[in-house]
Simulated scan of single mutants.
Amino acid sequence: MTANPRSDTIAVFGAGVMGCGITALALGRGVDVVLVDVSDEVLRAAEAEIAQQLRHGRFMGAFPGSRATGTLTTTLSGEAAADATAVIEAITEDSSLKARMLAEVSGVVAPGTTLITNTSGIPIDELAKSVRRPAELAGVHFMNPAYLIEMVEVIRGPRTAEDTVAAVFSLLGRLGKKAVVVHDAPGFVTSRLLHPMINEAARIVAEGTASVESVDRLMQGCLGHPTGPLRTADLIGLDNLADALRLLAERTGNPAFAPCDLLREKVRHGDLGRKTGRGFYDYEGVLS
């Protein structure tokens, strides 16, 4: 497989939480990005969010001070990805939607273009069935916020080619990331461990054993968790977390992974975490 020589731009599909974070990461590292979504309104909001993340990333020292910021192009047309050297799909964690998007993208880009799905737990080989060249597809599980968390999980599907993995590592190196390769499985490693822990933390709160704050303080102080599982859940997005847990329960056959009642209740009420101003914690007046 040879790299596409026509461009040094990556295309990101999906201007939601993860799409914005990945775009900010790339721009801050001097990489040009074409950001694709289906809504002008979403893209306008994404531009403001990405600008804020770039400011925050610079303040936190996440981006090289000597490197010029990459150029951002937003568009409603997937055809704009045709000349990209790599494509990162970052739409919602829905296997059918991801499969449909990847099928469309693989029909647009040239052979040799690295295809990356940003998924927290959907098996890569399941998605590879939809693309024209399965050997060119790999998974990368970026953590939120993508521009601050240094480590990523790279998932190699059964049909992922060695040169695709090499291309992914080359791109991640440009983005300043460290990576660990894992084999394909539902939930991979990080989600298989983290999401059930968050689910159990929510059950503990629902049962009245401890408050949200107490659970997080204990996990931070006793077990070294950087933020606590429930504050982490708010950052992930409780809707995203509930979807990922449902998928994990379905694909492993383990009903214990299904989202607990408290988590489902918060999603029903629209309390999805930081992005809506309220989740396990209240962020009203805190978010800019």
Rank of each mutant, 00 (worst) to 15 (best):
I22D: 07
S95K: 13
L248Q: 01
V180M: 13
E200A: 09
G70S: 03
P158W: 10
A103M: 06
T23M: 06
A26T: 06
G253H: 09
D282T: 06
N118K: 00
G187Y: 02
E150K: 15
I122E: 06
V38A: 14
V154T: 08
R268A: 15
H195A: 11
E213S: 09
H269G: 05
Q53M: 13
V181N: 02
S214C: 02
G237A: 04
K275R: 14
A167L: 12
E162I: 10
H195Q: 10
H141I: 03
N240R: 09
P255E: 09
T74M: 03
Y147E: 05
L272S: 03
I198G: 01
E153A: 04
A249Y: 03
E213V: 05
D125S: 10
E150R: 15
L241N: 00
I116P: 00
T190L: 10
L230V: 11
L102N: 08
A201T: 06
V36F: 07
T2M: 13
G57I: 01
S66G: 14
N240H: 07
R174Q: 14
K266P: 00
E47Y: 08
R251S: 08
P186T: 05
I22Q: 08
V152G: 05
T276S: 13
I88L: 15
R100A: 15
I236Q: 00
R6H: 15
I88M: 14
A135Y: 04
G187S: 03
T9F: 02
L127S: 03
A24H: 07
G21T: 04
L241G: 01
G221P: 00
L262E: 11
A206V: 09
Y283S: 11
A48M: 08
E126F: 11
A242K: 05
S170P: 07
K129Y: 04
R29D: 02
E126C: 13
Y283Q: 08
A210C: 08
